[in-house]
Amino acid sequence: MYRDIYLKNTYEEIVKLIDADTRVLDLGCGDGEMLFMLYERKNVYGLGLDIDTTEVLKCIKRGVSVVQEDINNGLKKYKDNSFDYVVMSETLQAVKDPDKILKKILKVGKKAIVAFPNFAHYKTRLSILFNGKMPKSNILPFEWYDTPNIHHLTIRDFKDFCKNSGIKILSEVYLGDNGKRIGNTFTNFFAEEAIFLLQKGEDEKKVQIKEISLPFPFKK
């Protein structure tokens, strides 16, 4: 049940980040709860993607538009800038090539929203330190052998990745213990869940023109 509270609060924060009357693509949409919230509150056109048949059927029952598809195939048919937002909630750490997918969603969406559990949360750290076992928590209740999360990451990892890939972080939201919102200090220690609003960096957007380097005698 704790996991439900975390998910609910995460969805609430994501919904707040999304402008009304936009087009939203939700990768790994699960039972479509977040899209349903968006339909009701923000009047968006929302499409969900999920690989799991049971989850897809739940979306259909809710009236949430859903496409059964494996994100790991690379979203090849999705055109650049065809959505205002591409959301990945609790999905990034479960995909095969998170780096490629991140870059792709920043093309398909004008903006992207990524939410993931922070593996450097103090409880996770203490659990490894004192138990010597793969940490389990409210938000990560899985055993090591059956977890869907194959690429755990921390807030610092993610920020480094964004910096190195020229991805702009427009907004960041953190949830601490009990799924409550916390401030932006010592987040890598205290935040159990991190939510980022992202955009492709300026240099990525521009068409890069390479400078022609002239041989030595002609150099300016």
Partner: peptide, 12 residues
């Protein structure tokens, strides 16, 4: 979806 239509797709 390009036309903002409500569509769901399931592959069995």
């Amino acid at each position: 979806t390009i036309n903002n239509k409500d569509v769901s797709y399931i592959e069995i």
